[in-house]
Design a protein around this nucleic acid. Structure first.
Length: 345
DNA sequence: AAGGCGTGGGT
DNA sequence: TACCCAAGCCT
C-alpha cells in the first residue's frame, strides 16, 4: 500500500485537529523553548498527559529556566516530583539541568546526538527535542508511533525485537520539513484515534493508507511478546509518632523510590517480614495494610504504629498536619493515610 | 540485554 | 475485577 501521501495527510489533520497543550507553542510562536520541550518530554516518559499537566505548571512557575532548575535545592525538586513516579527521572532532571549549565553554557545542544549525551535523554527524547524544539529532521519513535506505524504497514514482528524494523518504517514516512509537528501528530493520532483498543478508523485521516485497516484487524498490532507474571511481595511500614510529628527517612539514591522521603520499612519479601528490622524498639499497634502495584511486583504493605519509640537516627520529625508537603511517593502517602485513619478509630 | 523502575486511567 | 498500558531510560 503506497504511503507517499501519509506525511501531508497527517500534517493537514494536525493543523485542523491538534491538541492544545501547555508545552506546545502558541499561535504565532514557531517553537516552544527547548527548556520547556525537554521538561515536558521527561515528564511524559511513560506518563499520561493528564497526569503531567499540574506538575508541568508547577515546575515552570517555580523554576522558569534551566538555570533556575540547575540551582534548585535537590530535596525540593524531588518533593515536587512526588506522585509522578519513576523517580530516577527527577534525579536525572537535576543532573541534566546542571550539565546544560556547566558543560553547555546554559543552552541545550541543538542536535539529536548532542542531546543524547545528557542524563535522562534517550533515543526517543533526543529525537523529540531535536525535532520539536530545534526544527531538526529526526525520527521520533514512542509507543504511539510504534502502534500507528505497525498498523499502517501491518508489520507483525513482535516487540521488542521488531522495534528497529518499526523505526525503519517510521523513517520512511517522516518528512524533511515539520518533523516535530509530524511526530506530535503521530502521538495525537495514537492517543485519540489510533488507540490501543477500539481504534476509530472511520475518522482516521490515514484510513485509506492503512494496511491493518484494510485487513480489518488493526487491534492485532503491534504484536507483543508475552509478559511475565507479577510476584506478590510483603513488607511493613513503621509509623512513629511523637508530639504531632512523624519520623520520616530518605530512601537510598538507587532502587525503588530512590531518593524520596518515606516511612521506615523493613525488607520487601515474598513472606510477611512482620516487625523485623523495625527502626526502633516499641510496642507496635496494627493499623491495617495498603495494597500497591508497581511495574514488576505487587506489594502488601502492613502499617504498624507507635507513640513511644526508642531513640532513632538518620531521619527527621515531620509535622503530621503538613504531611502532604513531605513529598511522599504515593505508596507512602497511602500508608500515612492508613496510619492517620487508624489513630482515629 | 533483559529487567528494574510508579502511577493512574481505561475497559 | 483484573488487567492493560502510557510522549522510556538506565544498567
Amino acid at each position: 500500500m503506497p504511503v507517499d501521501a501519509v506525511p501531508e495527510k497527517l500534517l493537514n489533520w494536525y493543523d485542523a485537529h491538534h491538541r492544545r497543550l501547555p508545552w506546545r507553542a502558541g499561535p504565532g510562536e514557531p517553537r516552544a523553548a527547548p527548556y520547556r520541550v525537554w521538561l515536558s518530554e521527561v515528564m511524559l516518559q511513560q506518563t499520561t498527559v493528564a497526569a503531567v499537566k499540574s506538575y508541568y505548571a508547577h515546575f515552570t512557575t517555580r523554576w522558569p529556566t534551566v538555570a533556575d532548575l540547575a540551582a534548585a535545592d535537590e530535596a525540593e525538586v524531588m518533593a515536587a516530583w512526588a506522585g509522578l513516579g519513576y523517580y530516577a527521572r527527577a534525579r536525572n532532571l537535576i543532573a541534566c539541568a546542571r550539565a546544560v549549565v556547566n558543560d553547555h553554557g546554559g543552552a541545550f545542544p541543538d542536535s539529536e546526538a548532542g542531546l543524547r549525551t545528557l542524563p535522562g535523554i534517550g533515543d526517543y527524547s533526543a529525537a523529540a527535542i531535536a525535532a520539536i524544539a530545534f526544527g531538526r529532521r529526526a525520527v521520533v519513535v514512542d509507543a504511539n508511533v510504534e502502534r500507528v506505524t505497525s498498523r499502517l504497514f501491518a508489520f507483525d514482528g513482535p516487540l521488542p525485537v521488531g522495534r528497529p524494523a518499526i523505526r525503519e518504517l517510521a523513517d520512511r514516512i517522516t518528512p524533511d520539513e515539520r518533523a516535530g509537528d509530524f511526530a506530535q501528530a503521530m502521538m495525537d493520532l495514537g492517543s485519540s484515534i489510533c488507540t490501543v483498543r477500539n481504534p476509530q478508523c472511520l475518522i482516521c485521516p490515514l484510513h485509506g493508507d492503512c494496511a491493518a485497516r484494510a485487513a480489518g484487524n488493526p487491534e492485532a498490532y503491534p504484536v507483543k511478546a508475552p509478559k511475565k507474571a507479577k510476584p506478590q511481595r510483603r513488607g511493613t511500614a513503621f509509623w512513629i509518632e511523637r508530639d504531632g510529628h512523624v519520623w520520616l527517612v530518605r530512601r537510598p539514591a538507587k532502587g525503588m523510590l530512590g531518593g524520596m522521603r518515606a516511612l521506615p520499612t523493613g525488607p520487601w519479601t515474598d513472606a510477611d517480614p512482620g516487625l523485623a528490622e523495625a527502626p526502633a524498639k516499641a510496642d507496635w499497634v496494627e493499623a491495617g495494610s495498603v495494597d500497591h502495584v508497581f511495574t514488576h511486583f505487587a506489594l502488601r504493605l502492613r502499617v504498624v504504629t507507635t507513640r513511644k519509640p526508642a531513640p532513632l537516627n538518620e531521619g527527621e520529625w515531620w509535622p503530621i498536619a503538613r504531611i502532604e508537603e513531605a513529598g511522599l511517593p504515593t505508596l507512602f502517602a497511602r500508608a500515612a493515610a492508613r496510619a492517620i485513619a487508624a489513630a482515629q478509630d
